[in-house]
């Protein structure tokens, strides 16, 4: 998974032995100060509700690793929760992340999304979602950033393209192996 937005560029390669958890590498480049984080990320499914035509999930996402900025290297990590609910027509999600890496990075951020599918496709079709993402980073100059985006997926490929209210591009790509 590759995520690029106004705050960061992130690469996440993970393996899910079961639906309950995944483990893998995470690399983050913070666009503001060009600091980097490389670590091992563990995602735990805390709760799942499978409904008749819906699914809701709650995850704990944590990582430990090293942060680097301008030659300084320090241990660091982050933790946060991610929740989502979706039907074949509607989508909503929320996630937050608390990051700590001594003098290099100490931040808190959260984001929420709502989405609607303009059409409901069958399995194997090209699926399209129109989404609105709101990012909140209390320590940043732009506290709130709003990003309309389009999510499209077909088979094991999922891509997202959007542009925030301050003109930054959002480009995300996920591939299931």
């Amino acid at each position: 998974m590759v995520d690029n937005n106004h705050m960061e560029n992130m690469l996440h390669i993970h393996y899910s032995p079961t639906a309950k958890y995944s483990v893998g590498y995470v690399g983050i480049n913070m666009r503001g100060d060009e600091s980097q984080f490389h670590g091992v990320q563990l995602n735990n499914l805390l709760w799942r509700e499978n409904g008749d035509g819906s699914q809701a999930n709650l995850y704990l996402q944590s990582a430990l690793g090293i942060a680097e900025n301008d030659g300084d290297v320090t241990p660091g990590g982050f933790t946060g929760i991610a929740a989502d609910w979706e039907t074949r027509r509607y989508f909503a999600s929320y996630s937050n992340r608390l990051t700590y890496a001594d003098d290099i990075e100490e931040s808190y951020g959260q984001n929420a999304r709502v989405g609607i599918a303009p059409y409901v496709g069958d399995f194997g079709d090209l699926h399209t979602w129109l989404m609105l993402q709101v990012d909140h980073h209390p320590n940043e100059e732009d506290n709130f950033v709003v990003t309309p985006l389009v999510r499209m997926f077909k088979g094991p490929y999922l891509g997202e393209v959007g542009m925030s209210n301050n003109g930054d591009a959002l480009l995300n790509l996920s591939i299931r192996f």
Binding site: E49, N50, G51, D52, S54, Q55, H127, P156, L158
Partner: peptide, 13 residues
């Protein structure tokens, strides 16, 4: 017959 299978991307597995 299952429950919770609402997303094509998630059902790929």
């Amino acid at each position: 017959k299952v429950q919770g299978m609402v997303c094509d991307f998630c059902a790929q597995g």
